[in-house]
């Protein structure tokens, strides 16, 4: 699809519609079933008691957080793929999420409680990992698939070890929560988390969208981008700072949710093409719907128990990754 203002509007409207549908499905489904009548009462502010609490204080914040996290992950995946010129790049696979998780765990360990402190250290962890990945990529101009996967595996192995070390020193009753968080869990969602992530998401999306044209050229390569007028180093630095922030805050609030950044931009590219002016907003909106639905599935598949949402995304994402890797060398990149 050609990147024109009209097409952008249509894409955004369409995906916004999907988002509303995903929100309604997420509000409606769950261990406690609610009738449409109750839902309408709730919208009118007339519903009281347990159902109102379930909708307003459990499902709604959880869905909103899922939406914001999904948007951040979808966007980060698209940006990483363009900057590293590798279709398999994604925060989780690169180890950036692992670095952020490590930062968040360290925050807890050294007693920096509170959302802001954890998010800040997670941002630091993500930034450090991005720096490491860049140092590896810099030698080649782009990150080859084998290097990307191997460095990601090693970075993740290191951080997992570090996190396990920290976990080993904590008390047993926290284990379940930490373990769920490591697999990416939205059960602890609440409105303060939403209010923290919302401005970060809006700001990050705005900055990334501003650089959509730059990313189009960087997808070709640093040399081409530079000769066509992009201040490559400055743009890359800005982009990596912004995605580190998105991934860091996201991970500290929701844990390690993998593969969203891989699947979402790819599915968007298959339908809308590669132009970042459409790809970026579409990845954010579709990522939001995607994670809302994935989390609804995580809540309902083994109801009354629930799964960490990262389990659902990994069930979908890991086969997707293998499929993409098998097709690597085909003409999409």
């Amino acid at each position: 699809m050609r990147a024109t203002p009209k097409n952008l509007l249509w894409v955004c409207l369409g995906l916004f519609g999907l988002l509303v549908v995903a929100l309604l499905i997420g509000l409606g489904l769950g261990t406690v079933s609610l009738t449409p009548g109750q839902f309408m009462e709730w919208l009118g502010g007339e519903l009281e008691g347990a159902p109102a609490i379930i909708l307003g204080q459990l499902r709604l914040p959880r869905l909103l957080l899922a939406g914001l996290v999904g948007a951040c992950l979808g966007l980060s995946g698209a940006v990483f793929q363009a900057m590293l010129r590798n279709p398999l790049a994604e925060p989780f696979i690169l180890g950036v999420s692992g670095g952020a998780a490590c930062g968040a765990v360290v925050a807890v360990l050294i007693g920096i409680a509170g959302l802001w402190g954890q998010s800040l250290l997670a941002f630091g962890g993500a930034l450090g990992t991005v720096g490491l990945v860049l140092a590896i990529a810099r030698r080649r101009g782009s990150l080859e698939t084998s290097t990307l996967i191997l460095s990601g595996v090693m970075i993740n192995a290191f951080f997992t070890a570090l996190i396990m070390f920290v976990i080993s020193t904590t008390s047993d009753q926290k284990l379940h929560a930490i373990l769920f968080w490591l697999y990416g869990d939205l059960a602890a969602a609440n409105l303060p988390k939403v209010w923290l992530l919302l401005p970060v998401t809006v700001l990050g999306t705005a900055v990334i969208m501003f650089f959509a044209k730059h990313l189009n050229l960087l997808t070709a390569g640093g040399m081409a981008a530079s000769t066509l007028g992009v201040a490559v180093e400055r743009v890359k630095l800005t982009m990596f700072l912004v995605v580190s922030l998105l991934v860091g805050v996201t991970v500290s609030l929701s844990g390690l949710i993998g593969f969203v950044g891989l699947m979402v931009p790819h599915l968007v590219r298959m339908t809308l093409g590669h132009d970042h002016r459409l790809l970026l907003p579409a990845s954010a909106l579709f990522g939001a719907s995607f994670l809302m639905l994935a989390d609804t599935a995580a809540r309902t598949i083994i109801s009354p128990s629930s799964l960490p949402v990262g389990v659902v995304t990994a069930f979908l994402g890991a086969p997707f990754f293998v499929l993409l890797m098998a097709r690597r060398g085909s003409r999409w990149w």
């Binding site: 189009n216 050229l217 997808t219 390569g221 640093g222 081409a224 066509l228 590219r269 590669h274 999409w332």
Partner: peptide
């Protein structure tokens, strides 16, 4: 020359 394989010819030239 570096070209983005996924972009169409038209998109490449417009870039």
């Amino acid at each position: 020359a570096e070209l983005a394989s996924g972009f169409t010819v038209r998109e490449t030239v417009l870039a």
